[in-house]
Nucleic acid binder design. Structure first.
Lengths: 170, 170
DNA sequence: GTTTTACGTCAGCGTTGTTGACTTTCCAAG
DNA sequence: CTTGGAAAGTCAACAACGCTGACGTAAAAC
């Protein structure tokens, strides 16, 4: 066992938010919220015969047009075989274009086609709509806290990635 | 398309936190944080030849000892066939006990055995440890906001479940 | 010129989700 | 007391999406 019991309370600092029960509620909140978070895109993807893996690829290709396969690999944290299967179908279906690198011809630079962008918009509109409602309901202060806690949960290297994603969308 | 462009900004209310870019960052934060959130349990589960599905079952059985299979089904949001496969291995391996209902003998009331409790503790200690660090780093105000936004994201019926989970652990 | 890197691909496997069909058990209402 | 339907379990088949391992090609790097 790592740490058991209401360790935070025992510290006597009045850190009620660090009770095991509070932590447990946070864990469950993550579970249920993530379910909701993926529900809308999942519905749309099912209509197009795609899955979550396709969504993730599309999202990051849209976010950083021209990123290479290995970049994407690092961000998604899957094997190249797994990603390749997904990427191949997206290229075959004409949603993604893989351009050979000009400086380094081994690289493939990924871009969304118009059809790819259309699906991306459909997916992210749905996801943003839910997010917007949640943000609006909770208010700006809550949103700041939300982002702070999520960021603190990430592994350091993934946090780097997250923070370094440029703010503009091109 | 549902809503495109920086709709919130156009409302002129100064709701900067509702920009598409802010929403996008929230979406990515969810993605990366959830990865981290499941990483520690996943490692432990792999050692025991179990998967995330087992973890989820164990979590909720521990949380509400004696809950029925259909209760669990509703909370997890999977089919009974899918849950049954998981539950069967847990019962076979002696981590979960399925007691026939006394009032309604069709029901199976689920309980963790000692070995089940041991694994639950191992898993949730790891998960809580990460959560505790994140909470501590972000502070109580951020934690409150974190919970508020997650709660607002949930579908109403799942939010009901989430809120109604009793605070004690029995 | 050899090694390393980036990418693609084939084969095989495991977990976890799905649908559909069917049985058994049992409560409850007619 | 019979019957309808809910709760639970099971079998079969399938799909998405992870994984490992092995292999091939092209190009960059040393």
């Amino acid at each position: 066992m790592v740490e058991t019991g209401a360790s935070a309370v025992q510290s006597g600092e009045g850190l009620l938010f660090l009770t095991d029960e509070q932590l447990r509620k946070g864990i469950e909140a993550m579970f249920f919220a993530y379910r909701a978070f993926t529900a809308d895109p999942d519905r749309i993807l099912a209509e197009h015969d795609y899955g979550r893996a396709h969504h993730r690829a599309i999202h990051f290709i849209n976010r950083q047009p021209g990123l290479t396969v290995s970049n994407l690999l690092t961000m998604l944290g899957v094997t190249k075989q797994s990603l390749n299967r997904v990427l191949r179908t997206l290229v075959e279906d004409g949603l993604v274009e893989a351009r050979v690198g000009r400086r380094d011809k081994r690289e493939r630079h990924l871009h969304l086609t118009e059809r790819g962008q259309a699906l991306e918009r459909e997916l992210s509109d749905a996801q943003r709509a839910r997010m917007r409602l949640a943000y609006r309901a909770a208010g700006p202060a809550a949103v700041a806290g939300f982002r702070q806690v999520l960021e603190a949960m990430m592994d350091p290297d993934l946090r780097q990635f997250y923070q370094s994603m440029r703010e503009g969308v091109a």
